[in-house]
Design a protein around this nucleic acid. Structure first.
Lengths: 200, 200
DNA sequence: CCCTTATGTTCTATGTGTGTTCTATTATAG
DNA sequence: CTATAATAGAACACACATAGAACATAAGGG
């Protein structure tokens, strides 16, 4: 889809990117002309139409200040919802953040990313600061590592064991003990499908 | 398809590779002529046409600045060179393989990916089967985890400690012992900058 | 509600940068 | 010598860009 833009179109696109991050409202055609050193908004309009056709700018049907860039979503990116530390609610990140996730590390189902806090899974090779990829689903098989919500408030990352009448959450840290709950206390938020770590 | 290029064609191709990584827009034929010391764009055009026929350059149908190299490279992908197991040469993969690597997990320098075999770094959270991202360089700071080549043949992934007159490679496995070498026995192949694991 | 103003849309005309094609000439290798 | 590669240069065709006028539509004020 990223067809080649002409030099001028690229210039206009770059200016729009720049402008969009600085000002709340898109510019008018006249303002654009002024900024780009053009004297004919008719010419400019033609260029912008090319960007619309290229799928980079929203179609502006007679709207004022309608020159808005289409923010094309990166299909390889997933939202980073926040931090997960054993025994605390998931701590949301202020502004919406995303991170690229290789296809290999995700599944066809909806996934999201959390950042790990703490050492509760250290013996399974999940360290403090790691990014983990979670597949969003409400059921898990025994032995899977899940994001579990306890009593509707506290989230934790543990290996799950579901027995008749009870649910056991196993940490991977010999200094911590498995936790037992009744099934109605525990709701599964997702299952671990990938993990990433930065060393630099 | 990859028929042999003539001397001039190779030269042009090389220049285009160079240019493409530096400038956003492809050059015009005139610019190319100038850069290559030609005075006839007609001649150049013929050469470029040969590159098009060879499948190395996109067909430029009357487009301005249409001299683009064909590149199907996914910029988020890195080559997977093979498996690394302590004390063996890196086992190359038959067919060239690549894997997507998030920007966060790589650096600006050239990087490649290996897959880990064995548990020698298990206590640092690097498990059998993990994919690791290696930044290609020949020097390392003490404490960094490196791909080291011992005696020119055996590759291994260890934490490095460089002392005057000796190099110590530390595994992260209490059942294994640090290994000592003289500096001329050890050559650093790269430094660990990222790690990924699949759980599904 | 109408009028004005600001702004987006459409059209024609024009210039020029740039790719294309051609012919002719000169190297270079076998 | 012959064939291939490489070059120059002219002539051409078209993509790209621009200006400017005229028209259409939205927004706001009286």
């Amino acid at each position: 889809m990223n067809r080649s833009l002409t030099r001028r179109q690229q210039e206009i696109y770059d200016f729009l990117s720049q402008h969009g991050s600085e000002f709340e409202h898109p510019p008018t055609l006249d303002e654009l002309c002024n900024a780009l050193g053009l004297s004919s908004k008719g010419s400019l309009h033609k260029q912008i139409q090319a960007l619309v056709d290229a799928g980079l700018v929203e179609p502006m049907n007679n709207q004022r200040r309608g020159v808005r860039l289409i923010q094309e979503e990166d299909h390889t990116a997933l939202p980073v919802l926040g931090y997960i530390a054993a025994g605390h609610p998931i701590e949301a990140i202020e502004q919406r953040e995303t991170i690229q996730v290789p296809e290999l590390l995700r599944t066809a189902r909806p996934c999201y990313v959390l950042q790990v806090r703490g050492d509760s899974m250290i013996e399974d090779g999940i360290l403090d600061g790691d990014h983990i990829v979670i597949e969003q689903r409400e059921q898990a098989r025994n032995g899977e590592i899940v994001v579990a919500l306890i009593d509707g408030s506290d989230a934790t990352l543990k290996r799950i064991e579901q027995r008749p009448g009870e649910v056991i959450l196993h940490p991977a840290n010999s200094q911590m003990s498995p936790m037992r709950f009744s099934p109605d206390q525990v709701s599964i938020q997702g299952v671990l499908v990938g993990q990433m770590r930065v060393y630099h």
